[in-house]
Nucleic acid binder design. Structure first.
Lengths: 341, 341
DNA sequence: GCTACCTCGGCAATCGGTTGGCAAACACGC
DNA sequence: GCGTGTTTGCCAACCGATTGCCGAGGTAGC
């Protein structure tokens, strides 16, 4: 596996230091401050001088040193994105959306995850705060007060959560849930279960409360079933409790849990959707793969990511953006729903 | 959606500047340089003085300013991780592994993707290089020379690729492919196809060449079928060509392509594995979800991520780490393989 | 020809750390 | 009492930008 003569590789000492504005200044015979202005105060200088400096800069392959700029300005050009679990496919599109907006505005995103641990989340958030201009907290498991403390240090926006006094971007779970329960009701389901997510999750609360209120309104019975983790394993592990609950349909906290339950049903010979209908949340990658394909309530993930970053940017600029309306969810009907047995 | 009285939110000006070593110096009556040494040259100072300073620091809630440190030292404490497509589940575990090692060593990871575009990859890499200590290039689509140029600027490690003179971490595709073809052969398959990935992908070349050599050695016929993109859509779109090729088994460039093909087969009534056996690569999230569950060749993703970062760290320290042996792949038998028709 | 104003570019301070060199203070041996 | 050596902490320069202020020179108005 030796790919090359080690002696031919650059050592750190070999690499030439990148050019600075001082190099450009020397080359063009002006002062460094003039170079700085030429490069980021267009119009401030004589057009011809500016041209000359810009040319010299690109000839030298000059790239601004973000650290050096950050020191006097206090702006790092970096945003922190903290999610509860990187390996949860639900964050794909959200991250993508966030990245797109960040890239367009010339910001860099630092992605980190807290592995569903509040302690780790706090530690990571604090560490990130020293090197970013603002933080996007997605599905935070922290307590309100901790988030407020973080907010008192640096700009911050929460996604999928509401905290007193903190700018937020959230989905409106109502449309998706309403349609889903409507479908279940029309298919004759009267006893349904909600397979719960983490208690510290605000979104879990929203989903449960909305499902609960809707079910009650429509005279369906509904029970909440605990699950240990918002993962496929968590869903599989809840199978026994679901079965014992004697319901004809399950609304799961998220697709991961729904997929875990679905698989377990198949492995135990419980016919889905014949004997049990299952609906998930999020419409993650893979939700359409199993047979039956999973019906789910799609979250506006890309938009949540995009709006989150935009919101954060105006927050950083000191603007006080209006809290916009929540982004609507949408029911995606697939094969995991059928007439109640 | 108004969550709070806007007037109660901190404005940027409201936030108090974080404490600096100057604050600590003033508080303890020593000079800033002494504070600096107390905090990161243990033993250089009188033990008692050091204690006093450390106590004051933690009392003030001091956190070092990474930018300020980066300036004189040239070390940013940040590593860049550049993947070809963030939304490809294959990178989950790799990113996880990389993050774990980075976190343990106190480094921060900046994750970016190039959306399968070489131009974007180069631009992003160059941008990242100004603010990180080193770069991990995963599945790069750049040309060798471009990578070498990047390497001449900052430390860099490539994953899933070999480039002359560049430290690399790669999988050994042989074990997985050998076992997979062995199984196919024993099941009576004699005509197989390789559904190709991006031409610019080194890994695609490895997979094809190894499959080719092995098939030839064992007297199986093998053909290469192009696919337009290494995605589910790409796999679906290749269905016609696969069907026309008159083979009994397909080895796909990755699971995404395999899943796309699998779905398309189902939609067109082609029985898998009855009439066509399918094997993927990577064992991504979701590979086990469809019916039939996808057989695949698992990549040591977590290890690739971990080793990649470790390798990068020694590279940054100026060490010249030995090129270690490639990490073995492993065949994962599921339901998408059966006896040849 | 004089004042008033504007344009253009440089000086120097600043951001928050790090670090080489030095000097003060102290201990020790003789 | 003096030379030598060691410990300890400070001074000041530096990293690479940004920016307030100022002065030189040009232009215009009267």
């Amino acid at each position: 596996m030796e790919q090359s003569d080690a002696a031919t590789r650059p050592r750190n000492g070999d690499r030439k230091a990148p050019p600075t504005i001082y190099d450009i200044a020397r080359l063009t015979g002006v002062s460094p401050s003039t170079v700085s202005r030429a490069l980021n105060k267009p119009g401030r200088l004589n057009a011809q001088t500016e041209r000359r400096i810009r040319d010299a800069a690109s000839e030298l392959g000059y790239r601004i040193n973000p650290m050096a700029r950050a020191l006097p300005t206090g702006k790092t050009g970096t945003l922190g994105l903290l999610v509860s679990d990187i390996t949860n496919p639900v964050y794909f599109d959200l991250v993508r959306g966030a990245e797109r907006v960040a890239f367009e505005t010339g910001m860099t995103i630092v992605l980190a995850d807290s592995q569903e641990s509040p302690e780790l989340e706090r530690a990571t958030a604090e560490r990130l705060q020293t090197s970013v201009d603002g933080l996007l907290l997605v599905g935070s498991r922290l307590e309100d007060q901790q988030i407020q403390e973080l907010y008192s240090v640096k700009p911050l926006v929460v996604v999928n959560r509401l905290v007193e006094g903190i700018p937020a971007v959230i989905p409106d779970v109502r449309p998706g849930i309403t349609t889903a329960l409507e479908q279940l009701r029309e298919a004759g389901h009267r006893r349904i279960a909600y397979l719960a997510g983490p208690e510290a999750s605000w979104l879990n609360g929203q989903r449960w409360q909305t499902a609960f209120a809707t079910a009650v309104e429509w005279d369906m019975s509904i029970v909440e079933i605990k699950s240990n983790a918002p993962t496929r394993e968590g869903g599989a592990e809840a199978f026994g409790r679901v079965k014992a609950a004697d319901v004809t349909a399950v609304l799961a906290y998220n697709d991961l849990v729904a997929l875990g339950l679905l698989r377990e049903c198949r492995d135990h010979g419980v016919d889905v959707p014949g004997r049990l209908s299952i609906v998930g949340f999020d419409d993650i990658f893979g939700a359409d793969l199993p047979t039956p394909a999973l019906s789910t309530i799609r979250m506006p993930l890309t938009s949540l990511g995009e709006k989150g970053i935009r919101r954060l940017l105006t927050e950083i600029e000191g603007g006080r953006s209006e809290d916009e309306s929540a982004l609507p969810t949408e029911f995606v009907g697939r094969e995991s729903i059928a007439k109640a047995a």
